[in-house]
């Protein structure tokens, strides 16, 4: 079995199995955890609290105006590379074909050259994100292996993808195998590291907002 076949076949299958198991395990386990009982009388009903929770999920995801000078750079970086990642993952034709082969759904794609430019920009932003993490002492002290490894597996997928597109460094099939293997690694790491924030971030903000609204302290 060639490396590319291994990457597209058994390795991908194992990675998807681990990913699905891990994500569902953590999501269901977290959702079913016991919440602290609220002993006070609810200030808002379920529906209003729910809607306010949704609003909090949105408002807390936007930079806070008073701190914009201090946090703006980091937030702009974060949003930019996330948007870049989404565009590359969801609108590159081979990626859509990959998704179609698994789930049977597909959609319009962007020209490969545009996606390549976006990927290069995203890679540059990821380097800036790492530099910022290393350069700011507070951020550096808050960082652990999880932060760096999550950055590594994400960046590795982008780098190997760019190498495959540019046919740089090895034969195309080898580069493509590296790219898919790096994606397999990302899938395996995803549920157990901070990449899981992709599933947690908005529901957790929404739930916080919901409870605050129930207590009569919507923000």
């Amino acid at each position: 079995m060639e490396l590319l076949e291994f990457a597209r076949g058994p390795a991908l299958k194992v990675a998807l199995v681990v990913f699905c198991f891990g994500v569902l395990w953590r999501l269901v386990g977290t959702v079913l955890l016991r919440f602290h009982p609220h002993l006070s009388v609810p200030r808002n009903g379920f529906f209003k609290s729910f809607m306010l929770g949704l609003a909090v999920a949105g408002s807390r995801s936007w930079p806070y105006r008073r701190f914009i000078v201090r946090t703006g750079y980091g937030e702009a970086l974060g949003y930019s590379y996330h948007i870049g990642l989404f565009l590359v993952i969801l609108f590159f034709a081979p990626h859509v074909l990959f998704i179609k082969s698994l789930f049977g759904v597909s959609w319009a794609t962007l020209p490969s050259s545009i996606v390549t430019i976006i990927a290069v920009v995203t890679f540059t932003l990821l380097l800036a994100v790492l530099f910022r993490r290393l350069a700011y002492s507070v951020l550096r002290k808050l960082s652990n292996f999880d932060d760096y490894f999550s950055w590594f597996v994400t960046t590795l997928v982008i780098v190997t993808g760019l190498m495959a597109t540019a046919h740089f460094g090895a034969r195309y099939e080898t580069l493509m195998a590296w790219h898919i293997l790096s994606f397999d690694l990302l899938l395996i790491w995803f549920p157990f590291g901070k990449l899981m924030h992709a599933f947690y971030i908005f529901p957790s903000r929404m739930i916080n907002g919901y409870f605050l609204a129930r207590k009569g302290a919507p923000s």
Partner: peptide, 24 residues
């Protein structure tokens, strides 16, 4: 297509999701 995964059946992935939910 070359980009397609070489996975003959997605049943094990669904089973893994089910097992993950049960584990949760």
């Amino acid at each position: 297509p070359l980009a397609a995964g070489l996975i003959s059946s997605v049943a094990p992935i669904g089973e893994a999701a089910g097992a993950g939910a049960a584990a949760g």
